[in-house]
């Protein structure tokens, strides 16, 4: 029995591997995010400001929102009205949401004033903004899922704004079951996925360099013409 394959078979396999979907995706991912880019142990020396920690603080807030939300989900939507432990977990959920937004907004201000979209980082900025919008939706659906007076009030007020856009036909703030699903499944999944994507984009491009006012020319890969007006 022969254990060595003959050369033509090996060539065929190599050609197949080059075309293979799995292999292509792996090479694409490894090229985009080699380990030292994904988890770098060094940072450029211009990273020298406390403003840089607000992204990490936002992640901390989100982690705590998810953790406390998970405990609330385990016990069900009415638990916190009747249990003092439940009320305490709800309090943690509320305050972690407040901190999540607190840090996220400071992070947004910081990145705005750093013009952090420079150097082909536009998509990083945009995923961040979209995450912010989805977080507002997640917060809103949480408020209307509280099953108390606050949720009754917010739902009956918000319905007019949602209905006016035509979206009310599909997003019914008065439908508790629907709002709870949005709040504990769809929107958290979106926020977590977008946050993950956002972080991977940051790691892919690295942190933006300081603003240079008197630069002249940059090498630019692409097909844009020299007379680019922007």
């Amino acid at each position: 029995m022969s254990t060595t394959k003959d050369q033509t078979v090996l060539d065929q396999e190599e050609a197949e591997l080059a075309r293979q979907w799995t292999g292509r995706i792996r090479r694409l991912l490894v090229d985009a995010l080699p380990p030292d880019k994904l988890l770098p142990d060094r940072q450029p020396s211009y990273l020298s400001s406390w403003i840089y920690i607000f992204g990490a603080l936002t992640i901390g807030g989100l982690a705590l929102v998810i953790l406390t939300g998970t405990v609330l989900a385990l016990e069900g939507p009415q638990w916190w009205h009747v249990s003092s432990i439940g009320l305490f977990v709800n309090s943690m959920h509320l305050w972690s949401v407040e901190f999540f937004f607190f840090f996220m907004v400071i992070h947004l201000w910081g990145k705005f004033f750093m013009a952090a979209w420079r150097g082909n980082r536009q998509l990083t900025w945009m995923t961040g903004v979209v995450t912010f919008f989805f977080s507002i939706g997640a917060g809103f659906t949480g408020y209307v899922s509280q099953t108390n007076f606050d949720s009754q009030w917010i739902a009956t007020q918000a319905k007019d704004g949602i209905n006016a856009t035509g979206a009310g036909a599909f997003v019914n703030a008065l439908n508790f079951g629907q709002m709870l699903m949005w709040h504990i499944v769809l929107l958290p999944a979106a926020v977590v996925a977008l946050t993950g994507l956002h972080i991977l984009m940051v790691r892919h491009k690295g942190i933006v360099t300081p603003i240079e006012v008197n630069g002249t020319e940059v090498p630019h890969q692409g097909t844009q013409s020299e007379s680019d007006p922007s």
Binding site: W50, I53, F102, I106, G110
Partner: peptide, 9 residues
Amino acid sequence: MVAVFLLAI
């Protein structure tokens, strides 16, 4: 928020 932003800077 404003105060923390200014302090961070």
